[in-house]
């Protein structure tokens, strides 16, 4: 777990988002915020990732695919839900295609609220999670 926290690699999974949380995640990587300074890297495959960032409501069609992506990840790993939609379905609550919230499909470890959360909020959320995990060992 210690090795995982030194340089967490993240994989980004959109399960039915409006794209906004996704571009804000990408924003974290670009020069203004640049989380690569801390060894965080967005990777192209869930198999290489330590942290799974989930955005958006869990749509009917996405749920099985999201589950498979989670199963592909090397354990131990961390799941972070980003944005109002993945926290409590947000404005899409009651939609026929959003049967269950994200945290009933995946074991979510941290929630970052906002629509969309600012890059600063995302960074703060991940830092808090890392500190908590370090305390727990």
């Amino acid at each position: 777990m210690k090795a995982l926290l030194k340089s967490p690699w993240v994989f980004h999974l959109s399960t039915g988002s409006c794209n906004n949380c996704d571009i804000e995640i990408l924003d974290c990587l670009t020069p203004r915020f640049d989380i690569e300074r801390f060894g965080m890297l967005l990777v192209g495959s869930a198999r290489h990732a330590d942290v799974l960032l989930v955005t958006g409501i869990m749509t009917r069609q996405s749920a099985p695919a999201a589950k498979r992506v989670y199963e592909q990840m090397a354990k131990p790993c961390v799941v972070v839900a980003i944005g109002s939609c993945s926290l409590g379905q947000g404005i899409f609550k009651g939609s026929y295609n959003a049967p269950i919230p994200v945290d009933e499909v995946l074991p979510v470890d941290a929630y970052i609220p906002g629509c969309p959360p600012k890059p600063e909020a995302m960074i703060a959320g991940v830092v808090k999670l890392i500190q908590k995990l370090q305390g727990a060992k």
Partner: peptide
């Protein structure tokens, strides 16, 4: 496609 379908047109009616 269809992974991102959220039923917005139907939600708008409510």
């Amino acid at each position: 496609i269809g992974y991102n379908h959220r039923g917005i047109e139907k939600l708008a009616e409510s």
